[in-house]
Computed example of a mutant assay.
Amino acid sequence: MIRLKRPECPQKLALEKAELTEVYKLKKSSVWKRTFITNPLQKMSNDKCCFCECKLGEEGKYMQVEHFHPKDVYEDEVVDWNNLLPICMRCNTHKGSHDTYVNEIIDPTVRNPPDHLYLSKYRLKGKDDLGELTVRILDLNDTEEISVPRFKIANAVVDKIEEALDLVELYNPETGNALEKARIVRKVRSILKQCTSKYVYSAVVATVVLSDHLYDELKSVLVNKDIWTSDMQTFEDIAKTLKLDIKP
């Protein structure tokens, strides 16, 4: 889970909010299923579930609109912009009608998840009661649907670090050609981009990469051979904001 920046309320929603709310109260219809609502929400999360960071739009993972404070209890917030989040069906099912006013969980547009969560053996754990309840309510360590996919992705990135390190150690700045250097740059950029918010499970991937001693070694060699670039540093800086603490 990563921090999300909520954009301004869509103008059309601001204009129609009162009417949509009344329609919901009368008919209990899905008034939030409007493109002027769903499109900005999905863009806000980079097409990912706001909680588990799976890719929305894949089979069985189409986007649903999450009412952080449950609509059945707080009808006046049914299309309140600050109450809406993009979510996958799995997380939505687990959260259900959990009352977040009574027992708060993490709203990633309000709180910074790394303040409340840490990583232990690819499993998310709570640093505090808020983090623990969030993990439990959303079942964020669901082995089949979440833990295994993020483990595979993070492991694949670690393999890429080893491959990049082999390449850069063999590269001689004085005799190497532009193609060799470009291949190294592409591979390192690919690693670091997966640690940024546009990519699935970015919090876990950023944590694993930045905590790997081989990554430190890779960066050191890149710097010494004058291959480390400003955009690599930009990607790393973004990754640092997503990184979770690691505990045994």
Rank of each mutant, 00 (worst) to 15 (best):
L140S: 04
G60A: 05
F36W: 13
S230G: 00
L124E: 02
T38M: 11
K12N: 08
C91Q: 06
Y62F: 14
M232S: 03
R186P: 01
E22H: 13
D99W: 09
A156D: 08
L41I: 13
G60W: 07
N172M: 04
K5M: 07
N103A: 14
L242M: 06
I191R: 08
T143G: 00
K48T: 03
D212E: 07
H213E: 12
Y101G: 01
Y62D: 12
L170A: 12
D80W: 03
R34F: 09
V188S: 03
V65P: 03
V200A: 11
P149A: 01
K240M: 10
T207W: 12
E104F: 00
Y201V: 05
R6I: 06
I106L: 05
T100Q: 02
G176K: 05
D216A: 02
I146W: 01
L222E: 02
E104V: 13
I238R: 14
E104M: 09
K28C: 09
R186Q: 10
T35V: 12
L119Y: 03
K95W: 06
A206F: 12
K17E: 15
V73W: 00
I161D: 02
I2Y: 11
T35I: 10
L192K: 05
Q233E: 15
D226S: 13
I227H: 03
S230C: 00
S97T: 15
Y118F: 15
K95R: 07
V209G: 01
Y171D: 01
K33Y: 05
P114S: 06
K240N: 09
D159Q: 11
V200H: 02
V73S: 10
E16A: 13
T175P: 00
V79L: 04
Y122T: 07
Q42V: 11
T229K: 01
E163K: 13
V65W: 12
G60K: 07
E16S: 13
D80S: 13
E236Q: 14
E53C: 04
K225S: 01
E104A: 15
T196A: 00
A14I: 13
W228R: 02
V208F: 00
K95F: 07
A182M: 08
K247E: 13
P70W: 13
L170H: 09
F235C: 06
V221N: 01
L214Y: 12
K43A: 08
N46L: 04
W81S: 03
W228I: 00
N172Y: 04
R111V: 03
P70M: 13
P7E: 06
P108Q: 06
V78T: 11
D99G: 05
M63W: 14
L124P: 02
I106Y: 10
L117M: 06
D231F: 15
Q11E: 15
S190C: 01
H94C: 09
H98D: 05
V78M: 07
F51Q: 03
Q64C: 08
F36N: 07
S197H: 10
E174Y: 10
T234C: 00
C88K: 09
N46D: 08
L214I: 05
K27Y: 12
L192C: 05
L192T: 02
L214Q: 12
